[in-house]
Write a protein that binds this DNA or RNA. Structure first.
Lengths: 217, 217
DNA sequence: GCTCCGGCAACTGTCAACAGTTTACCGAAA
DNA sequence: TTTCGGTAAACTGTTGACAGTTGCCGGAGC
């Protein structure tokens, strides 16, 4: 049985602020006041302060004696984020190909086939980011069995990525291509070829980078 | 001119705790009490609490309602840390080969030559970790011009690495080999060959990993 | 002798208040 | 009209106190 864990006001505040930033309620560059946020959430400044500290370097930047601001997310930051993704997800794919149990890989493949069918029949060309694409990458991060990499991807990279995704539309046709690349990654995972799996993932991230940067400009 | 920045009690407490953990004053697995630490530092619990939160996932692990413990660092954690290093430092080397200015690379090379001479004449075989090896890797992280990667390496990876280094001696002969590998990396940086620079760095990290794991057991 | 339960001490999570600094506004002088 | 200076409000950094929970220790019961 799973223990009920860690529901503190600070965690609650953390989740609420993340949601507010990702959803766009807090705009990039906007200053967040501890006191104001505490009043709005109906709690004291202590937990709010803690939540904002946990977001430092992830979704907000902090200047001593001034306060915290929602990070701005231009092409420069986006490019750096994709470099980080390429390195981490590439390694995650390599480790997954090497160590992930067979049933994990098979489940991932069936999940991908289901998404594929769903996209084909609904005719939507955007490969719903929230569920499909992100789940795929999260699953591989989990399959890497490397807590460090998993933590950074889930708690830092994907948060920042969602800020960008909310604010930019995807190039038509990218969805189909992304799906193909996902299948290529799966193929290399099944083949238990670590080097090829890593390279497939890195190529996929690079393609996504170029597509995103093109969308931005 | 650089502004005098961020001397808060929390930052001070953060540095002190990091030093205490890295130096071995706080042993792995040991519980750290907020109140006790605050008393010892002569400050209130607020800044201490903030400092411990910033260390979460880096040098301490935290359990709700229980407290924080210094992370334990076995072969499993060490292996994962080196996977992360391989991914991040490999990418950092790639970016450095691609974008770092020429004088930066040249300065790095002269620094390496100086270290080399120093080691040769002093006859010490351990390549003083604190200054030489770490500086080299930090410099490449800086040369990557990628704030994300730089931040993770400096604030997370190298901290954890120092915990391990303090507690294990280095295999004899590893120092010379490491120095050779460093020169190989520099050579690829000068040649402006991103792929080769990345691979050289990754090979270097892999070699360090095997050496460290051998030392541990 | 071993197990289980109750009370106590210590600790974490949270709150409200204080002190020093930054920011914004407003009026006066050039 | 613009710029400079001063004052006041707001905010961050810090502190001490309070409440609920956890873990430990000793004693009672089997």
């Amino acid at each position: 049985m799973d223990k009920i864990v860690g529901t503190s006001l600070a965690s609650e505040a953390f989740d609420r602020v993340v949601e507010a930033i990702i959803s766009g309620e807090f705009e990039p560059g906007q200053k967040i006041s501890e006191a104001d946020l505490a009043r709005r959430l109906g709690i004291s400044r202590g937990p709010v302060r803690e939540a904002l500290h946990r977001l430092e370097g992830r979704l907000v930047s902090r200047v001593p004696r001034i306060g915290v601001r929602v990070i701005k997310f231009g092409s420069h930051e986006l490019r750096q984020l994709f470099y980080l993704r390429e390195a981490l997800e590439g390694m995650a794919a390599r480790l997954a190909a090497e160590f992930a149990p067979d049933d994990f890989v098979e489940e991932l493949e069936s999940l991908l086939h289901r998404d594929s069918a769903e996209i084909a029949q609904s005719g939507q060309s955007v490969y719903r980011q929230r569920s499909a694409d992100e789940d795929f990458h999260s699953a591989i991060a989990g399959a890497s069995n490397c807590e460090n990499i998993q933590r950074i991807l889930l708690n830092e990279v994907y948060y920042q990525l969602r800020i960008h995704r909310l604010r930019s539309s995807q190039k038509p046709g990218r969805a189909d291509q992304a799906l193909k690349e996902h299948f290529e990654i799966i193929a290399q995972l099944k083949a238990r070829n670590p080097a090829a799996a890593e390279e497939a993932m890195r190529a996929h991230v690079r393609a996504a980078r170029e597509s995103s940067l093109a969308d931005l400009s």
